[in-house]
Write a protein that binds this DNA or RNA. Sequence first.
DNA 1: TTGTAAGCGTTATCAG
DNA 2: CTGATAACGCTTACAA
Lengths: 341, 341
Amino acid sequence: MSKLRSAPTLDDVAKLAGVSTATVSRCLNNPDQVVKATRERVQSAVDALGYMPNFAARVMAAKRTSTIGAIIPTMENAIFARGLQAFQEELHQHGYTLLVSSSAYNPEIEEEQIRTLVARGADGLLLIGHDRNPRIYEDLERRSISTLVAWSYLPDAQIASIGFDNRTAMAELANRVIELGHRKIGMISGISAGNDRARLRIEGVKDAVKQSNLSTSDLTIVETPYEIENGAEAFSKMMSHTKPPTAILCGNDVLAVGALHRAQEMKLQVPKDVSITGFDDIELARIATPALTTVHVPHREMGRKAALELVRMLENQGTGTSAQLATHIVERQSLGPPAGT
Amino acid sequence: MSKLRSAPTLDDVAKLAGVSTATVSRCLNNPDQVVKATRERVQSAVDALGYMPNFAARVMAAKRTSTIGAIIPTMENAIFARGLQAFQEELHQHGYTLLVSSSAYNPEIEEEQIRTLVARGADGLLLIGHDRNPRIYEDLERRSISTLVAWSYLPDAQIASIGFDNRTAMAELANRVIELGHRKIGMISGISAGNDRARLRIEGVKDAVKQSNLSTSDLTIVETPYEIENGAEAFSKMMSHTKPPTAILCGNDVLAVGALHRAQEMKLQVPKDVSITGFDDIELARIATPALTTVHVPHREMGRKAALELVRMLENQGTGTSAQLATHIVERQSLGPPAGT
DNA sequence: TTGTAAGCGTTATCAG
DNA sequence: CTGATAACGCTTACAA
């Protein structure tokens, strides 16, 4: 069976309206360059045929796609959802379309995704965090693809970023924990290799420990993938030590919720027996029992600002300008003083 | 400042390798049609230039994109994440790329997204649920875009679907609730307009109520958007009745978790004071306190099967075949007999 | 096995 | 304000 009819083209519209393809194209893209009468005739033809412009052809001729690509580590939990939602809303406002893909926290997959998006003609790219093979940045620059990093702010990085200071934010939380009297501290981190957010959060905890004259042996760090299950596993492992920590800082809310859940299964009271903190302040943090004390990240603002900056870069052919956003600690119920205070 | 160099084209590669563009194209797409010596020469040229094919040009010439589009109602919670992940993995296996966008449960936005994906040349489309303007299906058919529905199985729908029987699944859960002795039942549903999953789940509860000779006045139904907050709000509203339900069935796990959370805030014991059930069996359901009794949906299997079917449709130019997947009730802690039994 | 050349559906330049 | 027409980069008959 043959295809009944194939999609109408500009030419079909032009013929039906009795004008040239150029005029139809103008009606669609620069309506004010065409007199009303013609414009209306063309519009009826478009409607009659159900014409829809062919994206690939348009891209070839115009040499831009008005498309921004974003590669996030995962769609499986809400960590990136809210920021990306705001990012895409703002882009939409400015006439850009967002293409999203996820890398499963795997640098090789990320690189492949970048390639795919570039091949598809993304005019700009949003990447999460700074840590990746420098060759990628060179490639992107050579192809003059505007690129911006989010979720991490590093003022002296080779590429502009809209984000926050992961290290200081985590250090502040750790200071608060120590201030409450905790002396034996655990940290459940995501895998830090190739992940500056994870790496810097670890550094932040170390900073606080050092500053408070605790010995490094008072701090136990475990790295594990960012899934609820892993948070739970890491928690039980950590609590099985002969002298377990009285407070456990988690690299994000997802790990923290896993830890919380396992604590409950182990009949440990939080924060009476052990304190647990998160990072991100996603919805899950409020819903958890007890509600998580965590670091609030202004996800929506970050997404919106990143979009605006990327659009600016695209329209001005300019290079990006970094911006730092403020985070703050949200104290809820999962952090308290250690037992016996 | 001018663009330093623009991306290398097939022509550049051909010249450097001393062959025609046709040969380069063959090396890339049908390597075995080219002798090894030539192939290697071309490969070095490709590497030397860092050549990367231009997607738009390829699409124009080949008239297919090897791209599948999917429009899901939301990325903001995990309901669709797992299924989509499996969907994309399977597609990748078969050489297809997935483009995802979300509609925020808004039919108009969904229609716009469909248009966008079609304009971008999606060879096939995955849609969630059957309920939408029939004109959309006609359009898709006219453009001969293979389309499949998931998350809902309706054998006699005009379009093939890989999914489950929302109505029966929910009826079974409701039967179980009634069997436990509940006589006053509440349902917190998503907005059913334009959402057959929501609509059918409501029907399922009604079926069970009717079957058990309960009066329709024993069933209270509230429709609300699918967000945690809304679940919480609906719950308190429902419990403020003079004779509140002893069991509340929620349209999905997200609403149920919201209800659960509010119950806790209201110092109501679940399931002692009131039972709450979910639907979907996402991770959240296991983590919630108490863990949610819910309907397990084989998300990964559904995603995988949908991908396979869509690929089949594409390669055989064939029409789709529907498939029904089994669901089952997962009994955890949030459902129990009513107080005083 | 390889080369030639005709499209693919737009946009944009340049005349009119 | 409108019309010709030349790109855009690649695939794919068809020829050699």
